[in-house]
């Protein structure tokens, strides 16, 4: 059985990036599907984060192309990528430490016109929306705290909330389960599943196998900068190439 049903949301063609002779991403051709929770797994150093950064424009790929909903976004600046509806979080959780929790969300709303930047930052409608999202991730009681003062797990939730604030069609999560306790991992997983049920597409990068396998509809496995397998969680788990890459058998 293949799950490759539905439209392709994000697609890369022969994407490559090397750092001083090391091929971090090597000729990666991948597909991720609309409306699904897509997973990207691989051992440490398999180029997952570099792949992520190439897709979102944080670093420039050496060659290859990136398409989002049939629109080429290769080498777009990160803010343009974000504005096409592709949100992301970072591996080592990144929030704005000296802004309040509420402001961390409000900055993620982009006015349609640059001149609107002269307007007030706290329109009531936006504040209400931000509060709604904070309520969903369970941070509503912290909105006036500065982000540096909340716990790491809360910062992870805050980062996710900020990504949601821009109302993205697709969210890319870089190791959402990294460095947080099991209870919070479950909560994040539940949240992702819930948001997905409401129509948000996800691409989750993890090396926590369990997290990916329980959550994702479609999984791509990376090894040494290239995809070595793709399919449902069950399919890739039985793929001998995956077993070799992961377990070294």
């Amino acid at each position: 059985m293949t799950d490759a049903g539905g439209a392709i949301a994000l697609r890369t063609e022969a994407l490559s990036k090397s750092f001083g002779g090391v091929h971090a991403v090597d000729d990666a051709t991948t597909e991720f599907f609309e409306g699904k929770i897509n997973g990207l797994i691989g051992p440490n150093g398999s180029g997952k984060t570099t792949f992520f950064n190439c897709v979102t424009g944080m670093i420039q790929p050496d060659s290859g192309r990136v398409y989002y909903r049939d629109r080429e976004i290769t080498r777009w600046q990160p803010h343009k990528v974000a504005r096409t509806g592709l949100g992301r979080t970072f591996q080592l959780c990144r929030v704005f430490p000296r802004l309040t929790v509420l402001d961390n969300l409000l900055v993620a709303v982009h006015p349609a016109h640059p001149l609107a930047y002269l307007g007030r930052p706290r329109e009531l409608a936006l504040v209400e929306r931000a509060r709604g999202i904070l309520g969903r991730v369970g941070l509503e009681h912290l909105e006036t705290a500065e982000a540096r003062d909340i716990s790491y797990g809360q910062q992870k939730l805050l980062e996710l909330a900020a990504a949601l604030m821009a109302d993205p069609e697709m969210v890319m999560l870089d190791e959402p389960a990294g460095g947080v306790n099991p209870a919070l991992i479950e909560r994040i997983a539940a949240l992702v599943a819930e948001l997905n049920a409401e129509g948000t597409t996800f691409l989750v990068v993890e090396h926590n196998m369990e997290f990916i396998m329980n959550l994702c509809h479609h999984v791509v496995v990376f090894d040494r900068g290239r995809p070595i397998a793709a399919g449902t969680a069950d399919q890739v788990q039985q793929d001998p190439k995956v077993l070799e890459a992961y377990l070294g058998v």
Partner: peptide, 13 residues
């Protein structure tokens, strides 16, 4: 606070 993060949230830095 964090320019990369700001960019990734869609701010035209």
């Amino acid at each position: 606070e964090d320019e990369d993060k700001a960019q990734s949230l869609g701010i035209p830095t």
